[in-house]
Nucleic acid binder design. Structure first.
Lengths: 346, 346
DNA sequence: ATGAAAGCGCTAACAG
DNA sequence: CTGTTAGCGCTTTCAT
């Protein structure tokens, strides 16, 4: 049986004083005598009194709760994001109410209603893959509830955003391959209808251009899964034995690529250097460990909450929105190595 | 600016009727005329009315929210657990308020207070590594708030529990190695002060005993991380070249072990079969893909919520608690293979 | 220095 | 069929 939780009323009754006195005593109101304060506080502690956050929220019209809508919790990137969110939210005195859309448009709508119903102070959203209509997000805007999109942003709705700079990531990976002396660098790319595909390709080409290397379309193939890597790599390398560097758009593709290369008796990194993108846990488990681009999920989560809490706690003009672009880092590990440079005048 | 969210009062005023009529109309109370119902409902829809869950919770003394305290969201196992929780909670009409302890005892205490304050209907807890004192959990018990421990349970507090059968997992892994014809099976084990270490070892020995194979203490070494696998495997195999099967207590250890074996020119699975434990994402990424024990995080999460919701919604006798033991599965992949059996009468 | 009362949004017993 | 009222736990004005 659920025994009722202690309220200020209980304390008031036991002490023979009014509930308003108890309320004031608990929050150190200057009007209350030290003696009463002491009495109230010690009884509260003794009875394990915990203020009813629901009553407070109702009264103050503020729930100190942040709603999160995320496609899939199990993806390492997203769980790092949530972890970052939770840490900052905790620091700032907010709770996280978490909903996963499971990449379903319908569920995203219900999630939005749930958060609206629970009067969250703000929402953090990464849009489901299958969401094409964004009306359900507008209700937050209409109600004046601050919103921050992260990673998968909604192009049609003006809000704060936190995204990673994919172009810069592609540039960093490619530039590093160039700097360690690779002469023929392939891109194992994602489809160009995806923003990440576009961005990472753009970074790749910018690096080649900047270092005056030619951009060979034959060096860019669509290969963005472990399966594709297993089926395409051997043939690709056989046809282009001059390739000495590969930038793959994600870690699992990069790792599978390395495995195929090893099966072909190509040495990684001695013959071919490989860079991935993501820096998930398997980048450390594979052998050689993977040089990769850090996607900074944890930081994205932290930044999203910071932006949101700022919006919640400060009256900003309703049409000023910022986009926070997180710059990814290159993490150098064992799958890349500087080429031995033959002396020109041997 | 936060424009005020629509309440039944607004609807009542616009329609010139009382708030109780609106309240009843919205929930299809039989007393209300069809006409009024229609009017109310259409206006509610038009104004995007969402019932205030906070007010409801306060009134009904039920928040429809489940509190979760989890050590680290980023671990694949825990994020699968949360995913399972969220899916079932959604199905049953509950929200998830999520707190991570980051393995800190102090933070776990604060998390508990937060959930108490927010009047959650029940809590799901996996205990932090550093928690030795469990008093903070007793407040839930004392308040009659149902609690379910999962994975890392608290031995001192009587509650419902959901755990995985580590002994059975160890047995399944070892039995499979025996069945495919391995004659000398090593255990790369976790320390025996951990429950998982004890359980998986117990399963290993039970399998050997059941199949009348002898238990050689030299075949059991403490090796439960990638690092240890890298430093210990080569030497171990050199000293015991007869080993033809290895059961490692987790996937990352198993994968690193395979990599060392490959470096030593041992073929996996032809020379040595390897089984892991966990079935995280890297079990599919490594090469050969890893035969492993499925830890069923998603299912653990689902079961925990089912148990909890049952406790919340049914008056059960306060001293009847169940422990749900999840039986792990063996997932056969490429890192194990049946030995070729030489015909006895060649 | 303390108490009484109103009200946050909603439901439900009671009264017509 | 509909309205009035009390109350969930708390804060805050207004009295005293």
């Amino acid at each position: 049986m659920r025994s009722h939780q202690i309220t200020i009323k209980d304390i008031a009754k036991t002490l023979g004083i009014s509930i308003s006195t108890v309320s004031r005593a608990l929050k150190n109101h200057p009007d209350i005598s030290e003696e009463t304060k002491l009495q109230v506080k010690s009884l509260a502690r003794k009875l394990n009194y915990e203020p009813n956050a629901l009553a407070l929220s109702l009264r103050k019209n503020k729930s100190n709760t942040i709603g999160v809508i995320i496609p899939q919790i199990v993806h390492h990137f997203f769980s790092s994001v949530i972890s970052g969110m939770e840490d900052i939210a905790y620091e700032r005195g907010y709770n996280i109410m978490m909903c996963q859309s499971n990449e379903l448009y319908e569920r995203e709508i219900i999630n939005s209603q749930t958060l609206l119903s629970n009067r969250v102070d703000g929402v953090l959203v990464s849009v489901s893959k299958h969401t094409l209509d964004f009306e359900h997000f507008r209700s937050f805007m209409n109600q004046g509830i601050p919103m921050v999109f992260f990673d998968r942003v909604c192009p049609d709705i003006l809000t704060d955003r936190v995204i990673i700079n994919d172009e810069e990531g592609g540039f960093l990976a490619t530039e590093y391959l160039i700097q360690i002396g690779c002469k023929k660098i392939a891109l194992f790319s994602a489809p160009q209808n995806l923003l990440i595909g576009q961005g990472r390709l753009a970074g790749y080409t910018r690096a080649l251009r900047q270092y005056k290397m030619d951009i060979d379309p034959k060096m860019i193939i669509h290969c963005d899964t472990s399966e594709l890597a297993w089926s395409l790599t051997a043939d690709f390398i056989t046809r282009h034995p001059e390739v000495d560097g590969i930038f793959a758009v994600n870690d699992s593709t990069a790792i599978s690529t390395i495995q195929v290369l090893q099966k072909m008796n190509k040495k990684v990194p001695d013959d071919i250097s490989v860079v991935g993108f993501g820096d998930g846990p398997n980048a450390l488990i594979c052998s050689p460990t993977l040089t990769t681009i850090e996607q900074k999920g944890y930081e994205i989560g932290m930044e999203a909450v910071k932006l949101l809490v700022y919006k919640i706690e400060n009256e900003t003009s309703p049409d000023s929105f910022q986009t926070k672009v997180i710059t990814p880092n290159l993490i150098v590990r064992e799958s890349t190595r500087r080429k031995f440079i033959h002396s020109a005048n041997g």
